[in-house]
Design a protein around this nucleic acid. Structure first.
Lengths: 337, 337
DNA sequence: AAGCTTTGCTCAAACGATTGCGCAAAAATA
DNA sequence: TATTTTTGCGCAATCGTTTGAGCAAAGCTT
């Protein structure tokens, strides 16, 4: 049998009505006391004609798409690629499909993606927001369950699961201070982004009052940025800092590249610590000490939270308390500082 | 105005019929000679009530979802993450959305994902197949345009865009031979996968007839595999090979890790070359000589091909000649061998 | 045997859009 | 003025499901 079988073909082949067929096929047979005979015949016929329900029609009718919209600001960034992978698989395990959109750090593309999600009737949204104000997402959140991940807004009613970037930066900085470094360069990423701001705050708070020299440079979570800032500071054989705190793995890589060009040896000449998970950092020489974010835990918590809201709304139950979690990151000690 | 506006609300607010509203909103006004007055009023009203078409209903009616199904065997693998990112952005540029599914190297999950795509009425599918026989995908391909990427089947009528793994492996091996290596260990990935088989064939063909000792080991595209095989061969201070050809970047990393444990220095003690793109490989020390696949080119060619089929089927035109391309990879020379 | 329950199913209206066909009024032509 | 043509729009079916309401036949009760 070929592709175009629908509930109607089954109805006419079995002699039952489409209602009965539908109820059997959606497992509602018992509830409507369909006879065993009918159940068997219909199921068997469905199998024979290789019936696959039209999920689009189903969605239109039931208002449930079994699809979640996932919005990230740059799928080409390994960090978000990993995150997406984890989330997609968590969703798949629950029988949900994923519409993936990339806002490419653009508010406008974010807005478009959200509208698309809405038009597609996704059952929920998991987003790494790029907007600076929560309005848009909160607006959408009234129609569709939304959970933020990795980034959130300062004052928002939306649930989020992020890692504690302030804490992470403090941990990193404190570690550097403990190791005796006296002059630290922080290379930051996108200054307007929430994680960056928190990391910066953690960094400066940790250093405040200590007899330590420091500076902040940079403006993007990119390899180029890391490279360029190091070149600027360390050119002409200068060694103005004895340690560098890279706010992302990409920045770190750029820095390492620059150090190589400058013939500055990491660890011997300058200590270096990084943010971000990246198994890759273990293969560098020396392996890079870093702040890792518990991505798996955060993802799974975000997914739980999302389905908590979805389920309660579907059942008409009161919504669970808004979950706003900051998960503490972990310091992974290697040998780069 | 709030979310629940549909074509009907606009119709009643303007006094026009839903037909007219629909035609205006889908840009068919001219074709049906709708008056300028009606056009203006309807457009303005749509704006006021913040009308967003229900894409699900639209899909049901028009049989076009503006969605492409993307199937990869492991989104957590950086290679496929990068590939997905590129493809998603190419599709977005054409106004298409992406349903992303992960088969996790399982034929069964692949099959499920394909059925899901079909049920969701995707307009086309781009897949990195894991199945060993083409049947399933060819079957689907009759209903929905399908283009394979990265992996293909030996004899298939399906269009594909892959890189020439045979050639790549030859290039890598020839390079090693040119550099004077005399004893080469190849560590392969999943033996049943097409790319692996081709790489293996390229490797052995390149070495055939040369006075060179070689061996093949391994069975997965994973870090562990790379690590374990090196440990097996090089334990007890043995140096049975003077060069290693890793069939993937993950394998390479495992190998490097093992060499570190064994106190074997890459380049001085053993040459090493790898397959796969991975910007990361440049940051290792020494930077890794490798075979890079033109991912961007392949992706864009796959997308072009796909839309070639989609467009011709939509217009009822004869289908374009089946595009089956093997793109030559490039040797990126660094300093690991 | 009359009434009440249960059983097992069908009818038809949604869901929100698109679209072939038709048709009245206005304009153009004869 | 009568006919034809053009303009501008509406009717209602359709896509493939789900679902509230209803109903005949069979079984049970008294």
């Amino acid at each position: 049998m070929e592709g175009k079988s629908n509930i109607f073909t089954i109805a006419s082949r079995t002699g039952y009505s489409v209602s009965t067929v539908s109820r059997v096929l959606t497992g509602q047979a018992a509830k409507f006391r369909i006879s065993k005979k009918a159940i068997d015949l219909i199921s068997e016929t469905a199998r024979q004609v290789n019936y696959q329900p039209d999920l689009v029609a189903q969605t239109l009718r039931t208002k449930q798409s079994h699809t979640i919209g996932l919005l990230v600001p740059g799928i080409d960034n390994p960090f978000f690629a990993t995150l997406s992978g984890i989330i997609i698989n968590l969703l798949a395990a629950r029988g949900y499909h994923t519409l993936l959109a990339d806002s490419r750090e653009s508010e406008q593309e974010e807005e478009q993606a959200l509208q698309m999600f809405k038009g597609r009737k996704v059952d929920g949204i998991i987003a790494v927001p790029v907007a600076t104000k929560a309005d848009n997402l909160e607006q959408i959140g009234r129609d569709i369950p939304v959970v933020l991940i990795d980034r959130h807004f300062k004052k928002t009613t939306l649930p989020y699961v992020c890692t504690d970037n302030y804490l992470g930066a403090r941990m990193a900085t404190d570690y550097l201070l403990d190791r005796g470094y006296k002059s630290i360069l922080a290379i930051q990423g996108v200054p307007t982004s929430m994680p960056n701001q928190e990391r910066l705050r953690g960094f400066t708070d940790a250093i405040k009052g200590k007899p330590v020299h420091y500076a902040v440079a940079g403006n993007a979570f990119s390899v180029e940025n890391g490279h360029d800032e190091i070149m600027k500071c360390f050119s002409d054989g200068a060694r103005p800092f004895d340690a560098v705190f890279a706010f992302s793995a990409t920045i770190l890589l750029g820095a390492i590249d620059a150090f190589r060009e400058l013939n500055i040896e990491v660890k011997r000449d300058v200590g270096i610590i990084s943010y971000d998970n990246n198994g890759f950092l273990d293969f560098l020489d020396p392996a890079v000490t870093r702040i890792e974010q518990p991505l798996r835990e955060a993802s799974s918590m975000a997914v739980e939270t999302l389905f908590g809201i979805i389920d309660s709304r579907r059942e008409g139950l009161p919504e669970p308390a808004v979950c706003q979690r900051l998960i503490p990151p972990t310091l992974v000690v290697r040998s780069s500082c």
